[in-house]
């Protein structure tokens, strides 16, 4: 009885990729099967045609283009990686900056606060004294004016 066609193994037989038993089975089958012989011839020709393809002509500038592209991509990757690493800390950095500014602006301790109050009190007191002084001066000027004859001040009288 004629054995089933060994078609799937024909390609592997061409490449010598079969076990000795499979190889013998294919060769035995080929002796008696015209259809498989023709198929094998086609596969052989296709393989030869594909393998005859000449090598591809690469542009002489290809390497320099690749390296320029690589340098630019590497730099981009570096900055984007840095950005990616840094971004989660941005929010915390903002919060930390606000806290720092608040701490610097706030009086450091009670003594400093007391000093600030004292300075303010002294300033207020000296302002008050200056005001009293000014009022005294104004009073003297007024008294002097009233003691003078009325004609000297253009008819000024009480």
């Amino acid at each position: 009885m004629k054995k089933a066609h060994e078609t799937v193994n024909l390609s592997a037989w061409l490449d010598d990729q079969l076990s000795p038993a499979d190889k013998a089975a294919v060769e035995q089958h080929l002796k008696q099967c015209r259809r498989c012989q023709n198929l094998l011839a086609d596969l052989q020709q296709v393989r030869a045609m594909t393998r005859q393809q000449p090598s591809y002509a690469v542009s002489p500038f290809f390497a320099s283009r690749v390296l320029a592209g690589y340098r630019s991509a590497a730099a981009e990757t570096f900055w984007s990686e840095l950005d990616r690493l840094w971004r989660p800390f941005l929010r915390w950095a903002a919060v930390a900056a606000i806290i720092l500014v608040a701490l610097l602006a706030w009086p450091q301790d009670d003594q400093a606060l007391e000093n600030a109050v004292q300075v303010t009190e002294v300033e207020l007191l000296s302002g008050q004294q200056e005001l009293v002084q000014s009022l005294g001066d104004m009073n003297q000027v007024l008294q002097f004016a009233l003691s003078q004859p009325s004609s000297q001040f253009g008819g000024f009288s009480q």
Binding site: A12, D42, Q45
Partner: peptide, 24 residues
């Protein structure tokens, strides 16, 4: 690998029949 390579070569042989016959 074996079965797909066989199918690929067979399929290609069918598509390139005129060139294969010319060679033959």
């Amino acid at each position: 690998v074996k079965s797909r390579l066989f199918r690929a070569r067979k399929e290609l042989a069918n598509r390139l029949k005129p060139y294969l016959e010319e060679n033959r």
